[in-house]
Amino acid sequence: MWGNVTAELFKLVKRPANWLLLAVALVLGLLFTYVIPYAGYRSGTGGPTADRGLAAMIPAQLVGNSVAGLPVFLGAILVILGVLAVGSEYGWDTWKTVLTLGPSRLAVYAGKLAALAVAALAFVLALFVAGAAASLIIAAVEDQPMAFPSIGDLATGLGAGWLIAAMWTAFGVVLAVLLRGVALALGLGLVWLLAVQNLLAGLAAPLVDWIAQAQKGLPGPNAGALAAALGSTPDTPGVDALVGGSQAALVVALYLAGFLVAGALVLRRRDIL
């Protein structure tokens, strides 16, 4: 089992596309959470987030700021991570190369999931570290308080962020297993995350009551509610306190488990063609 985990970690670390995804995530996260709001503050041009002002960019807001992107646009990057990690094995036909060497399908799958869990944690940690650096710089320049949230709050935020990140990664994994490849899994995953979720929340839910209620059981809105419970601003796309934080965490965890089990069942049963 440990051999499968280290093999999968090796593949993740050595793959340039994964580093590109992390770089894009960090750039986007810093840009929309710190750089653009700070530029708006400095120029005094106002805008929809002007009321947040400096207070939203200081270290005390690190938890909410770091997980704010995970329900939608950073989540999309994690879906790509999951799809690439599993879908490429179909695209390159490497499932057969690995499995003919003897490890069981579920052992390889478990190794892959463990490696992706580590990657998701590293991803969220990187968001926190980059956010901490950016907020410290802003606080230092603007002579603002430099105190970070408590260790407990940081740990809770990190754990919740990891949960959301793992859930979206697992969503990518199960799509890749079901669709046995990268392209369609990636396309459908991103359409769901970036388009369908927004249409449901912005267009359908205000018009149809049962859709509004059904949203409370969907992964994206619950990820958004969890982020909101951790202090993410509702101005961020996908962040909305639709349900309480505990319920949101439970639903996200259930989706995570459901995706992993579904992927395992399908992978175990199907032929490797």
């Binding site: 051999g3 093999a7 593949k11 190369t97 690995v98 060497l101 390889v108």
Partner: peptide
């Protein structure tokens, strides 16, 4: 190397 790890 990756395959060797998978294969033990």
């Amino acid at each position: 190397r990756v395959l060797a790890r998978h294969a033990g």
